[in-house]
Computed example of a mutant assay.
Amino acid sequence: MSTVSSAGHVLLATDKFKGSLTAAEATAHLAAGLRRAVPGLGIRTVPVADGGEGTVDAAVEAGFARVLTRATGPTGVPIEVDFAVRGETAVIEVAEASGLRRLPRGEAAPLSASSYGTGELIRAALDAGCTRIILGLGGSACTDGGAGLAQALGARLLDADGEELSPGGAALTRLVRVDLTGLAAIGELIVACDVDNPLLGPNGAAAIYGPQKGATAEDVALLDAGLANWAKVISISTSDADFARVPGAGAAGGIGFAALALLGARLEPGIDIVLDLADFPAKAAGARLVITGEGSLDAQSLRGKAPAGVARAAARGGIPVIAVAGVCTLTPAELEAAGIRAAYALADIEPDLDRCILEAGPLLEQLAAGLLVATLTGAA
């Protein structure tokens, strides 16, 4: 049996292992493996997310209450959804009402999918008395520039005949005028965003993320044209700056743009928001080690994802960080530059990737009970 110093606890702050474990499940399995190998070890858990799927769950783990309601799915089908509330603050995920996982039978609808349901969730939070909305972007099925969201909050999008536009990004090519007189006011809107794409062009919402939502090359061109028209009409109607160029405007199919241009939002890294909600500094105080991770540690992990954000936060307290993952493609130098001392992957102990996905929980416990103990004893 390994022995370690009793000084300081270990803080587990992992994101989900997509397709295998939620963030809470991942931290629970890690904790089980560590306790089995190191009886009496002090452990605290802070399941985290980067603003995409899992952000509401992370808020609930941090003490928010889960609120159930109904909203319109990305293709117009009513669905059961939830958001989180604590006091006057609400946490909402775009993926919950307008996400790819909400597509009926998984059938993509790149031209007609809408963000309307996300607007309904914001409306529900406002009706519940919330004056501060945290909106997690990521996992969206739509490329409508947030037009549906705006419609759900009272904006009217009109074509040349004065008729309301149909849902989806393709319809935006027919947009002539917007009526914002009925648009709901939001006290404070904070957008959790982990990408820096603008709304338009080769690095924009349609070009970069459209294919992931089923868009063909022709669809991408049509969607980009619709978004360009949407941005032009909004700019004329509001006489504001060109928000289409702002990094992050292209997030979640352009919902970032609508949040900035119409709702006065400010964009912040999603992981930083979640760590703040969870009071990470207080839970990390006195820790001897922080363990973070996610399903795949790769180059994308270094660009605003949870592990890099956790490492930054831990560094402020001088706490060493190691990471766990299903697979890791980062070099030791890249890990070190991100503030991560070492990384351990399920693929290191189980070369069958299918088994890594299906049996991620037990394998994570095995990883914790084996390879991680060496780090813990070394940090004693």
Rank of each mutant, 00 (worst) to 15 (best):
P332T: 09
A259E: 00
L222A: 12
A347S: 15
E359T: 13
I134S: 07
P74G: 10
R303P: 10
A125N: 03
G318P: 05
A259R: 00
L172V: 05
T75P: 01
L302S: 07
I122Q: 08
A374Y: 10
S301F: 01
D224L: 07
E188K: 07
S237D: 01
A333L: 14
R123Q: 12
A345S: 08
A258S: 14
S296D: 02
G317N: 07
E268P: 05
A261G: 14
A24K: 09
A306K: 04
G254A: 00
E53C: 05
G8P: 04
G99L: 12
H9I: 02
L358T: 08
L376Y: 06
L135G: 09
A128D: 04
P362A: 13
W230D: 11
L372H: 00
E365S: 15
L330P: 02
K232S: 15
G378D: 08
L11Y: 07
A287R: 12
A95I: 03
D348L: 04
V373K: 04
P167D: 01
L158Y: 02
L263F: 14
G264H: 00
S20M: 08
I255S: 03
E164I: 04
L275Q: 13
R355S: 10
A284R: 14
L175R: 07
G339E: 06
V77G: 06
T89C: 06
I273Y: 00
A141K: 04
G248C: 00
R303K: 14
G169I: 06
L157N: 09
S20A: 15
A141M: 12
G33N: 12
S166Y: 00
A337G: 10
L30H: 13
